[in-house]
């Protein structure tokens, strides 16, 4: 069982003092939730859990602990974020011990909540089924119907780089094609696209949970927080909300791993990933680059060559 092996691995790393702490998931305080935990002693390693609600990208915590030697529990997408951050020199690669788990794909807790009458009080997974207890007793649901869209489209469920692997590798096969939401978005007319974007961003409360949940958003001063120069106002006017969301997405170009942490963090359920999926798609087509897959390849927008081979640049 993955969880048992994970705890054993964590105990070993901590007792041999190979890491100062391990960032992993612990049991959440409610059903459908896991919560980040920071484990420092072999005894504490028993707090680690692994299930389909380990949805956060824990790489976002590496900025907090960049003076330590850190073990971190990663899914395929999270592992790619770690590589991308190392390329941006946020820490030295030797500071990080990746505890990689081939991902079973995470369950969309909000979708699950909407599918059942009343509050879900208990949930368990059995193979390809999710069994939830709510108002009308137990309900059995198909796991595949409740995966996050990005997880359904994922082609890097196994960490691509070398990790201390816990669990067996899974076969890489997307249930849908890549970037499913971007493809849906592309089908719309320019007017429909704008209307969609406008409707989604309109309910933004500027809590910046999308920014904070993202490992790649780590600027000491975000452009929205700068008062001199002031790039953006702080109120809820539609133009400011739209501006924030466009710039947030653009700053991810060639850096996003399609983990979906931004969208999962949003308390207002704003659709966000169709924008970054589109950017990822463009970067892949134009530069044949996928974020965090090759630890030696710099993101295309961070490099310059006088003899850039791409025709569209010249």
């Amino acid at each position: 069982m993955v969880q048992k092996k994970l705890r054993e691995k964590a105990k070993e790393l901590l007792s041999k003092k190979e890491v100062d702490l391990i960032i992993g998931f612990g049991e959440g305080s409610q059903p459908l939730r896991a919560t980040p935990v920071f484990v420092r002693t072999p005894e504490e390693a028993d707090r680690l859990v692994w299930n389909s609600f380990c949805e956060n990208n824990l790489a976002t915590y590496l900025h907090k602990f960049n003076r330590f030697k850190v073990g971190i529990v990663v899914k395929g997408c999270d592992a790619r974020s770690v590589t991308a951050l190392a390329l941006e020199k946020r820490f030295k690669p030797e500071q990080i011990v990746l505890i990689g788990i081939p991902c079973q794909r995470m369950i969309d807790r909000k979708k699950l909540k909407k599918a059942v009458k009343g509050e879900i009080v208990k949930v368990r997974e059995e193979g390809d089924k999710i069994i939830v207890s709510a108002e009308d007793g137990e309900v059995v649901l198909r796991r595949d119907d409740f995966l996050y869209p990005l997880c359904k489209a994922c082609t890097h469920r196994n960490p691509v780089q070398e990790t201390l692997l816990v669990g067996d590798r899974v076969e890489e096969a997307a249930l849908t094609g890549p970037n499913p939401e971007a493809r849906e978005f592309e089908k719309k007319s320019p007017e429909e696209r704008w209307a969609f974007f406008e409707k989604e961003t309109d309910r933004c409360i500027r809590c910046y949970a999308c920014r904070e949940a993202c490992p790649m958003c780590y600027c000491t001063e975000c452009f929205v927080d700068s008062s001199n120069p002031k790039w953006i106002e702080k109120s809820l006017s539609p133009s400011d909300l739209q501006f924030y969301h466009i710039v947030r997405a653009y700053h991810q170009t060639g850096r996003c791993t399609n983990c979906g942490a931004c969208e999962r963090a949003c308390p207002m359920d704003i659709r966000l990933t169709y924008l970054t999926q589109k950017l990822n798609q463009e970067v892949e087509e134009l530069f044949q680059f996928e974020t965090g897959v090759d630890p030696g390849a710099l993101p295309p927008l961070s490099t310059y060559k006088a003899d850039d081979p791409q025709e569209f640049i010249k």
């Binding site: 919560t35 980040p36 935990v37 920071f38 976002t60 915590y61 907090k64 409360i205 500027r206 809590c207 910046y208 949970a209 920014r211 904070e212 949940a213 106002e233 702080k234 109120s235 963090a265 308390p267």
Partner: peptide, 28 residues
Amino acid sequence: DRVHEKCIGCGVCTFLCPTCHCFDIVDE
């Protein structure tokens, strides 16, 4: 030292809190 560790520092809890009332005044 330990309580805050998992907090990512977004404003969800305070903005959605019915009693939180801090504000900032700006001229636009």
